[in-house]
């Protein structure tokens, strides 16, 4: 196609060179600057002086050990990685070679971190050759950033939904207390950790009578009230759960001396015995509580503790209701 490539010469004026290679550097045979592409001049700023030496403007990163442009061309064939000494951009990648004839050296470069360079130098379209993939790269970077941010948002929303679902799966919807499943998990964990805690098993007295005479809505009202009382009487680190129709359990975390256990239980019973007004009618219930302490259960086994609390509750019911009994 081309008759004789070795004899083919192309003459370019400096304006055309600047348009096609806005990041070029033309050096004379000794490595002193003859011309700068306009974008490279923006990078070098005050360092872009005619006659400036290559090694005064740039630090060579690769090929390793090279300092002057002669070293670069000799060591790396024609590819190099350099950093402007003024530190305005982190690095430039390029290639270069001696031109036939007078030995001048033509280098052409591009930004290694295009995104940072467009920002720090406020570059625009006209600073790049039309053939460069600048818009494509920046498009991808921004598209990628927005996809990542959408995914982060999605993850946060899913995590929020997961937490809410877990919370819901652990909650008794009527009273807002924990449910059986949540209580079992807490008890298992405390037993496995051989923690010091008190376990109370509470059963309402005369609840069936309220249900039978005032209806189920009144019964639900009583249960909601009991839920509120238990929340009020316990600390956040404790756990109160409704595990059956009118059956509740409480875990008092971190302490189990008999006196505090009895005080807490009696306070709860006193609150529950206060008459509750439902649609103008008095609903009155009471509560019996059986208490066990983790210190008294040698093997600290969840099912043994529940059975022991159950026996204490049975004893409280048997002893005349409205009582708390501590099983030792």
């Amino acid at each position: 196609m081309h008759a004789d490539l070795s004899r083919f010469r192309l003459k370019l004026d400096i304006m055309t060179l600047a348009r096609f290679m806005p990041m070029h550097l033309l050096l004379d045979a000794d490595g002193c600057a003859l011309s700068f592409g306009p974008t490279l001049a923006q990078v070098l700023q005050g360092d872009a002086k005619l006659g400036a030496r290559f090694e005064d403007m740039f630090e060579v990163r690769a090929p390793g050990g090279a300092v002057t442009i002669d070293d670069v061309l000799a060591r790396a064939g024609n590819r190099f990685r350099i950093a402007p000494r003024n530190g305005l951009v982190s690095g430039l990648r390029g290639h270069g070679q001696r031109l036939p004839g007078d030995g001048r050296i033509l280098l052409n470069m591009t930004f290694i971190d295009l995104i940072a360079a467009t920002r720090s130098l406020a570059l625009s379209d006209s600073d790049f050759a039309a053939s460069e993939l600048v818009r494509e790269v920046l498009f991808l970077a921004e598209a990628n950033a927005s996809v990542t941010s959408e995914l982060r948002g999605l993850n946060l929303r899913l995590e929020g939904a997961r937490v809410a679902a877990v919370e819901e799966a652990m909650t008794d919807p009527l009273t807002g207390l924990r449910n059986r499943r949540a209580f079992d998990l807490v008890l298992e964990r405390l037993c496995a950790a051989r923690a010091n805690f008190g376990l109370m098993h509470l059963d309402l007295d005369y609840f069936k009578a309220v249900n039978d005479t005032l209806g189920h809505a009144a019964g639900d009202f009583v249960l909601e009230n009991v839920g509120r009382i238990l929340r009020d009487q316990l600390r956040t680190e404790d756990c109160a759960a409704r595990i059956g129709g009118d059956e509740f359990v409480m875990i008092v975390a971190g302490r189990s001396d008999p006196r505090s256990m009895m005080t807490i239980a009696n306070r709860i019973i006193a609150k529950i015995r206060e008459p509750m007004m439902f649609e103008g009618q008095v609903a009155q219930v009471s509560a019996s509580i059986g208490i066990v302490r983790s210190l008294n259960c040698k093997d600290s086994n969840a099912s043994h503790m529940i059975a022991a609390a159950d026996r204490a509750l049975y004893a409280a019911k048997h002893a005349g209701r409205g009582l708390a009994i501590l099983h030792d």
Partner: peptide, 14 residues
Amino acid sequence: RHATAKAFDLAMPE
């Protein structure tokens, strides 16, 4: 070129 184009910087706004 009926009106001035809205500003567009190549660099992503921080």
